[in-house]
Design a protein around this nucleic acid. Sequence first.
DNA 1: AAATAGTACAACCGCACTCCG
DNA 2: TCGGAGTGCGGTTGTACTATT
Length: 325
Amino acid sequence: MGRSPCCEKAHTNKGAWTKEEDQRLIDYIRVHGEGCWRSLPKAAGLLRCGKSCRLRWINYLRPDLKRGNFTEEEDELIIKLHSLLGNKWSLIAGRLPGRTDNEIKNYWNTHIKRKLVSRGIDPQTHRPLNEITTTTTTTVLTPAATISHLDFSSNNSSLPSLPVSKLNLMKNSQTNNTYNYNNINNFSTTAITVPTLNYPKIEPLEDVNCTSSGTTTEEEPPQQIVQQQKQDKFDESELNLELSIGLRPVQTESTRVSSANTAESKLQQVHGGFNQLFGTVQSAMVAQAVCLCCQLGYQSSNSTELCMNCKNSNGLYRYYRPLNS
DNA sequence: AAATAGTACAACCGCACTCCG
DNA sequence: TCGGAGTGCGGTTGTACTATT
């Protein structure tokens, strides 16, 4: 049994929007605001599907959209973000104020792909097209590798089984037991050092060997939480806003030392689950996050005034409507 | 000038996720 | 806890426009 269609297809217009339809939609949203897209068409007197209205508004009619050509800076930012996030267009769009996911996706497919190919770079992997082997220090499952399962349970009673989904994990090839976790909210990399004997069972959905700009924390003490300051400036070489955490190898009760300021104590605080640890780390990351557009100077560079991104508590730019404000 | 090929992008489709009763 | 409604997302398609022959 399939789900019901989103609208009565029989009595809806399809295809390009007319000026009148646009105006009706704009007028309606100006008065009533966004929301309840299913009932909106009828209320606004539009013979359109609610989804169609939503798409038209979000991708074309919103007043805060930045129309026009992409700048060189935007190009480079999209490339960097794509290398980190893959085809997560909405996330990429969240970092480009005034641009929509659809617009970026189209632009990627029509311009940037070709641009990268002409530079000799594979648009999907962001590796040189003619590269056969790699000598870089980090092996990455895929630019946005998805790990289906992370399991500490077999040899370790203090850490739970970890049904970790959709983490961007990169295995550090130099330190066999370190994984880098790409935090998509603020582009930081979290190095997770796991006990050698309790090596996590990684089941990558895709096995794509490629390189990355991910950083390692091999020389840092394993139990130390090191939160490096973000780079003030968008670096041409890489988006390296590093936050590192190393998990101490499993210890017996007798050897366990508690300290309020150590990573170990943090671990103990979150013994209810590794997911909680990620939640804690992520929260810290987000709390510290300064949006990229501010770093880049796209938005207000005035230090006393946060841009819309930074005003948004989750660190991600989302659509904002100045209509009724 | 007409036909054809290539390009750009708006719009659609279907799936997945979240929310709420 | 479950199921349906609403919404968001990524991939794909359709079509208008431009360049080339």
